[in-house]
């Protein structure tokens, strides 16, 4: 019974983290939520008897994808609603 409960709690965490990642305005927290999705997903793969996929998801989804998103946020803007006033666009009329 505990295993079934564990599975359902994991499913709920996945959906909650996905909704949080989409709704959050601060992009850094949104990216960390996608990291949580990867953690729970790799446990899910292990429960579904796919250890190879679980290892791949653990290495790539948790570490590498999160870090490239964070690098991108460092080089762009962190706030989703940021509306730059003095943006220069030479094609603007």
């Amino acid at each position: 019974m505990a295993l079934i409960l564990f599975l359902i709690i994991m499913a709920l965490i996945l959906i909650a983290a996905a909704i949080f990642a989409v709704m959050q305005k601060d992009l850094l927290f949104a990216v960390l939520a996608t990291g949580i999705i990867s953690v729970v997903l790799s446990v899910f793969f292990y429960v579904l008897q796919a250890p190879d996929v679980a290892i791949t998801e653990a290495a790539i989804g948790i570490a590498l994808t999160t870090i490239i998103f964070i690098i991108t946020i460092r080089n762009t803007s962190r706030n989703e609603d940021e509306y730059t006033e003095n943006h220069i666009n030479k094609f603007d009329k």
Binding site: V22, L27, T34, L41, F45, A50, T72, E80
Partner: peptide, 27 residues
């Protein structure tokens, strides 16, 4: 969503869902 990083986050969430669906079909 309007922010480009948000769009890429959405793409990676779709990825996760499709991978879970595939593995679940094979179980």
């Amino acid at each position: 969503k309007k922010h480009l990083v948000k769009i890429v986050i959405g793409l990676s969430i779709i990825d996760a869902g499709v991978h879970l669906l595939f593995v679940a079909v094979g179980y």
